[in-house]
């Protein structure tokens, strides 16, 4: 049963294309996950939630490699995005990351480790306090969170920990894009004898220190994370600074 939309949602729907407006939903998980209720309690308790097709979460419907499942969250169709939470209902560690767009668009590409088939969702908070939720099911063979990282079998990462490579694109179809790779094992702590060891925070800013995006990452983000951002019209070099849960810091400058 579909419940009638609240006034806020009706007002929103009036501004949207009819197909999108028809897909707006305030209850009844469109992904039909038995865990949605728990997810809502854990992340969005007591707050107004709208399943919104403008929150686009892209991932392969069948992920060949559960250690590196690509996910792209695109909420650029919404304005005034303040916060985005990404979580996977059936992962042993549910929370994947959070990001706070400032100068950048509400867009982030990354890869995630999945332990079993699960919805991957993004909950997007706009300035009016409303949470817009989108997501997609990913089927996978499993084992992504309890498999040892590649770093576990090679000491090379110790010399290269937190090494950053990155690039900006200013022309072509990817114009306005920033991509960044950080060497890090991103150990989940779910492999016996290997404690959780993962990046926790990355902040992007322009050369003048104006924030582009702040990113909080958790254990399920894939080893040697790669992030794709839309820096938009901003020009010039971009500074990325971050740290992991052992206090190791990194800082890198990505030339335009």
């Amino acid at each position: 049963m579909k419940f009638p939309l609240t006034m806020a949602a009706i007002a929103l729907a009036a501004l949207m294309p009819p197909a999108d407006a028809a897909a707006l939903q305030e209850s009844g998980d469109p992904l039909a996950s038995a865990r949605w209720g728990e997810m809502q309690k854990a992340f969005l308790a007591g707050q107004q939630v709208l399943f919104d097709p403008r929150v686009k979460v892209s991932a392969p419907s069948t992920a060949e490699n559960p250690l590196q499942v690509p996910v792209t969250v695109d909420a650029t169709a919404l304005s005034n995005v303040r916060e985005v939470i990404v979580f996977a209902d059936f992962n042993p560690i549910v929370q994947v990351l959070r990001f706070y767009p400032a100068g950048s668009g509400a867009y982030l590409g990354f890869r995630v480790k999945l332990q079993q088939s699960t919805p991957v969702r993004a909950a997007v908070r706009t300035a009016d306090g409303l949470w817009h939720v989108g997501g997609t099911w990913v089927n996978t063979v499993g084992g992504g969170c309890t498999a040892p990282s590649a770093a576990a079998s090679s000491p090379e990462w110790q010399q290269r920990l937190n090494e950053v490579s990155g690039r900006q694109w200013s022309e072509g179809p990817a114009s306005g894009r920033l991509r960044l790779r950080i060497v890090h094992p991103m150990d989940t702590g779910l492999v016996a004898g290997t404690p959780a060891f993962y990046l926790e925070e990355i902040a992007f800013a322009d050369a003048a220190g104006q924030p582009l995006m702040r990113l909080q990452t958790y254990e399920p983000v894939a080893e040697n994370p790669v992030f794709t951002l839309q820096r938009g019209a901003l020009a010039g070099p971009i500074e990325a600074r971050g740290r992991d849960n052992n206090g190791n810091l990194f800082q890198a400058r990505i030339a335009p």
Binding site: S58, A59, P60, Q68, P70, V71, T72, G109, R111, R167, W169, G172, P173, A174, R177, R179, V226, T228
Partner: peptide, 10 residues
């Protein structure tokens, strides 16, 4: 080289 993300490549 074109800056595509893995989902776009797929």
């Amino acid at each position: 080289e074109a800056g595509l993300d893995m989902n776009e490549v797929l």
